[in-house]
Design a binder for these strands. Sequence first.
DNA 1: CGCCAGCTTGATTGTGTTCAAGCGGAGTGG
DNA 2: CCACTCCGCTTGAACACAATCAAGCTGGCG
Lengths: 253, 253
Amino acid sequence: MSRLLEAEFGTEPAFRRLSALTALDEPARTALQRAMNRARMVAARRDVLAEGAEINETLLVLDGWAARFRQLEDGRRQIIGLLLPGDLIGLCDQERPLASCSIVAITDLQLCVAPDRAASPTLARAYALSRALDEVHLIGHITRLGRLDAHERMIDLMLELLERMDLAGLTEGGQYALPLTQEVLADLLGLTAVHVNRTLQAMRRAGDIASHGRALAIANPPALYRRIARTSPRVSALERSATGRLNFMGGLT
Amino acid sequence: MSRLLEAEFGTEPAFRRLSALTALDEPARTALQRAMNRARMVAARRDVLAEGAEINETLLVLDGWAARFRQLEDGRRQIIGLLLPGDLIGLCDQERPLASCSIVAITDLQLCVAPDRAASPTLARAYALSRALDEVHLIGHITRLGRLDAHERMIDLMLELLERMDLAGLTEGGQYALPLTQEVLADLLGLTAVHVNRTLQAMRRAGDIASHGRALAIANPPALYRRIARTSPRVSALERSATGRLNFMGGLT
DNA sequence: CGCCAGCTTGATTGTGTTCAAGCGGAGTGG
DNA sequence: CCACTCCGCTTGAACACAATCAAGCTGGCG
């Protein structure tokens, strides 16, 4: 592997996220790099996985966004969570698990098969932390839907995504690209698209956010953090310690 | 161990639930039985675990109900999920995980330390399935909160609890004891206690449910299943196959 | 050019909240 | 034994947040 490729690899969002979770040793890096060379593409709006399908392999998101969702018989849709670069799909310790929700590509998506956790104990640890983080996000989402109003939900979500994008090295000066339509936001936040629209407008007028094309700028995250009863477990959980390592939460309860 | 004790053990809700998840071999049964002999009690309304606390051991609920919840700074509370007999607390594969939410005893609670999964591969499998089921419940809860109205949320929850209680052998003729105050239901369903009250009254008037003291009778589960856009992954997931084993779902996505 | 998806706006309706008050039963202390 | 309290349940009236319905706008793309 040439040094150039190695350097490129180091800036890959998925690699950045996993190594932010825990320091990866050489076998882990090698396994990841090999897996990432066999990427597959999924076009925007295409299904990645249908609910109830058998899961044969764990996938790793390399680029683009996807959404886990559940669809009710009458057509109502609830998005369970978003999958960002570096997120894992289908992590579990059963033999032949079935998907508990469907997954759709929100943008064009680049995936690879995640290397087996047996490749390295550090990789196994990164996976365990990733899974714990997933659960934290589910819990945050429940709290958002159950106890926050439309404005709070929106801000809370944007702050969660800021943290997550940051983990994968995908933010710049508190800004990041938010490739979600208002309809997707609605299905995520348990609102209607119309109401999402009005909420966003109010937030822009209030100066809380600014969007230039796809880029979302959150005016003053620390101020918002203070103003909002945050659903995520603890804000500080994603603050990096002096070592550059995460000073971390995790674990089911 | 005398045969009598062995027989008692076989009817323990926690044991019934775990062995409904997967057939448990002798080492698993022995380990469980030994663990269950060292039960600890927690009085109703007492905290079992505070958010952010370090989790040193996995716990198993033997008797009574508990709730995982997150409390916002302004006092709003959202219940993330309920813990019923046979449910596990703190399952994960990290070394020193921190609790991602607080847990409070809803009724008097009997707990024990869950035997190490290394005790038996069948036990490990039961734990993995239990964890997958937990995630399914989180997903169902998100869908409930995001896309169902008050009536639907109530019915959907009651059906989920019917299935879960049944798994632990704690139902009789479609009835089970529901030890939740209207305030707890409100914090669970993202509603106010006042509105829960009115919703329950409407359901009683409509004949959907009947409560005699603590016992909740759901009039006609199959009919409700049909009427309601269910949030749980698939209703059939909890139907027992001819073998008495579960014909099962599970698995993260 | 024409289409379509996504965004915007207004008017109206409705589900659920808020505030306020009262009730009934279980447990406690005088 | 009674008074007192507290908790959970119930009820009513007014209000508010978000849904619904309907229409028009904008920009990218075939």
